[in-house]
Amino acid sequence: MRIAIVGAVLTALGLVAVASGVLPLDAVAALAERSAPILGFVVAMTVVAELAAEAGVFRALAERLARMAGGRAILLWLLVVVLATASTVFLSLDTTAVLLTPVVVSLAAHVRLPPIPFALTTVWLANTASLLLPVSNLTNLLAAERLALHPLEFAALMAAPALVAVVVPAVIVLLVRRRELAARFVPDEPAAIGDRPLFWTAVGVLAALVPLLVSGLPVWLPASGAALVLVVVFAVRRRRVLRPGLAPWSLLVFVCGLFLAMQAAHELGATAVLGELAGTGEGPLELLRLTGASALSANAIDNLPAFLALEPFAASPLRTAALLIGVNAGAIVTPWASLATLLWHQRLVAMGVEISWWRYVALGLLVAPLTVAGATLGLALAAG
Rank of each mutant, 00 (worst) to 15 (best):
V9W: 11
L10R: 05
T11H: 08
T11R: 02
A12T: 12
A12S: 15
L13K: 13
G14E: 05
L15D: 05
V16R: 10
A17N: 08
A17T: 06
A19P: 06
S20F: 09
G21N: 03
V22L: 14
L23A: 02
L23R: 01
L23N: 01
P24L: 03
L25K: 01
L25P: 02
L25G: 07
D26I: 04
A27Q: 10
A29P: 02
A30Y: 01
A30T: 05
L31H: 02
L31V: 02
A32R: 07
A32G: 08
R34N: 05
S35F: 12
S35M: 08
A36D: 06
P37R: 07
I38Y: 01
L39Y: 08
G40L: 15
G40K: 10
F41S: 08
V42D: 14
V43F: 08
A44D: 05
A44V: 03
A44W: 00
M45Q: 12
T46K: 12
T46W: 15
T46F: 15
T46L: 15
V47Q: 09
V48A: 07
V48S: 07
V48K: 05
V48I: 03
E50V: 11
E50F: 11
A53T: 15
E54M: 12
E54A: 14
A55F: 05
A55M: 08
V57C: 04
R59C: 01
A60R: 07
L61A: 08
L61W: 03
L61R: 01
A62Q: 02
E63V: 00
E63H: 00
E63W: 01
R64V: 01
R67M: 03
M68V: 06
